[in-house]
Design a protein around this nucleic acid. Structure first.
Length: 418
RNA sequence: GUGGCUAUAGCUCAGUAGGCAGAGCACCAGAUUGUGGAUCUGGGUGUCGCGGGUUCAAGUCCCGCUAGCCACCCCA
């Protein structure tokens, strides 16, 4: 008789178990605290959005084509699980009337995002991000501000050894001319590029710059750099951002090959990597300016800047660094009834909970066994209850670290435990 | 989506030329004469990922599937 297969978690998703929660809490609380320190307010937006919202901002990219969780709901609406937060936050900014208030709106958000990727370590189909967005202002001060916020967060959670890469990709005014230059440079080399890059050349030439295929590398060095061809406004913005970062004492590397594939990204782009990393896959946080996003969604043209930080990778790094997080027992006090005393034990626990976290061991085990598990759980106190005690509404309180025991009435427990 | 590696106890893994499934840790029970940690004793807790095939015999060989990991694609 074949047993039925137990049902396991869906591919690419995972549970965050209690043992890992202290680390996650530290990462998240650190983020919220830094966010608030910078004057950002928390927002929660739905995990579900109209697929069209995502498609509009993702265009016909590969990513949307094969990595979006998309489905029709029972009412025939075409929905998607959000693959990133910014599109939804910008939508909420308008729908919630935040565009009517003082600008910019400074917002932060935590939550799960979804991508139908092939899973591997640090890359899950459901992953968690910390997002920060400043919407409604084109001031360069905000570009630097969100970068500083990201940096503060990573430092706060114990990640000191970081590399910040920075670039500017211009805007709708100067980028087209630059792209022509770039194409003009690469056209004669086309036959020497690898297949995908030959296609990128006309379709998405910025992508040529972050190609990783060896055969395409030699041509990058002499390729025109966008930062040499910015319009006056973008050049001034770029200069201010850099000056502000220097003023903040934040080190960065100008990476002229750091780009974004979509048109609504403008000017500043940046990514934080852990110190040792060389791969493209280990960015801890990445962001930039998206002055064209609101318009792409069909709202009034509105500038914005922000970043997304990956909680999965950050917590993983924290764990790898042996980041110390205080672990506390699930309950300070454990009530051990010795005999059939569930009702009495529950009452005693209720009394103790006034001052300390308290649990009851209801298992039909020997007292020795119960003491053993109390010890393993790390209980600070144990309240022993025998039938005779219960009848007199007394109990024996044992301090697990000193081994001292005292008999006392139930009503005295709160003062003795406090 | 592509290529590669892996899958044995709760965990880390061993398992030799196919021949009754193992270790350490963990866990459970007991003793130390009704109360934990140290020590001792006892207990294997297993659909060998799933499904087929070859064979007298498959954890071991072959095929398919699933899952994890690595590198790509991609990362909106």
């Amino acid at each position: 008789m074949a047993r039925t297969e137990p049902i396991k978690a869906v591919r690419g998703v995972r549970d965050i178990l209690p043992a890992e929660m202290p680390l996650w809490r530290a990462a998240q609380q650190g983020a919220a605290e830094v966010g608030r320190r910078f004057g950002y307010e928390e927002i929660i937006t739905p995990i579900l959005e109209h697929a069209e919202l995502i498609e509009r901002v993702g265009e016909d990219t590969d990513a949307v084509a094969k990595e979006l969780y998309r489905f029709d709901d029972r009412g025939g609406r075409n929905l998607a699980l959000r693959p990133e937060a910014t599109a939804g936050v910008v939508r909420a900014y308008f729908e919630g009337g935040l565009n009517q208030g003082p600008q910019p709106s400074r917002l932060y958000l935590f939550g799960p995002m979804f991508r139908y990727d092939r899973p591997q370590k640090g890359r899950y189909r459901q992953f968690f991000q910390f997002n920060v967005e400043a919407i409604g202002s084109a001031a360069a001060g905000l570009d630097a501000e969100v970068i500083e916020l990201a940096s503060e967060w990573l430092h706060q959670v114990g990640l000191q050894d970081l590399r910040l890469e920075l670039n500017s990709i211009g805007d709708g005014k100067c980028r087209p001319a630059y792209l022509e230059r770039l194409k003009a440079y690469y056209r004669p080399l086309k036959s020497q590029l690898h297949g995908d890059c030959q296609l990128r050349l006309e379709r998405n030439p910025l992508r040529l710059l972050d190609c990783k295929v060896p055969q395409c590398q030699p041509f990058k060095a002499d390729a025109p750099r966008i930062t040499d061809h910015l319009c006056d406004e973008c050049a001034a913005h770029w200069a201010v951002v850099r000056r502000l970062l220097e003023g903040a004492g934040i080190e960065y590397q100008h990476n002229p090959y750091l780009v974004r594939g979509l048109d609504y990204y403008t000017r500043t782009v940046f990514e934080f990597y852990p110190g040792g990393a060389k791969g493209q896959q280990d960015a801890l946080a990445s962001g930039g300016r998206y002055d064209g996003l609101a318009e792409a969604e069909g709202w009034p043209s509105t500038p914005g800047v922000g970043f997304a930080g990956g909680l999965d990778r950050v917590t993983e790094l924290m764990a790898a660094k042996g980041e110390e997080v205080a672990i506390s027992p699930p309950a300070d006090v454990l009530v051990l009834p010795d005999g059939d005393l569930a009702v009495e034990a529950a009452e005693v626990a209720r009394i103790c909970r006034a001052v300390r976290s308290t649990a009851v061991d209801y298992e039909p085990k020997s007292l020795t066994a119960k003491m053993r598990s109390a010890n393993k759980l790390g209980a600070k106190f144990v309240v022993l209850l025998t039938p005779e005690d219960a009848a007199r509404r007394t109990a024996r309180l044992r301090d697990m670290s000193s081994g001292e025991q005292t008999d006392l009435a139930w009503v005295e427990l709160p003062t003795r435990l406090a």
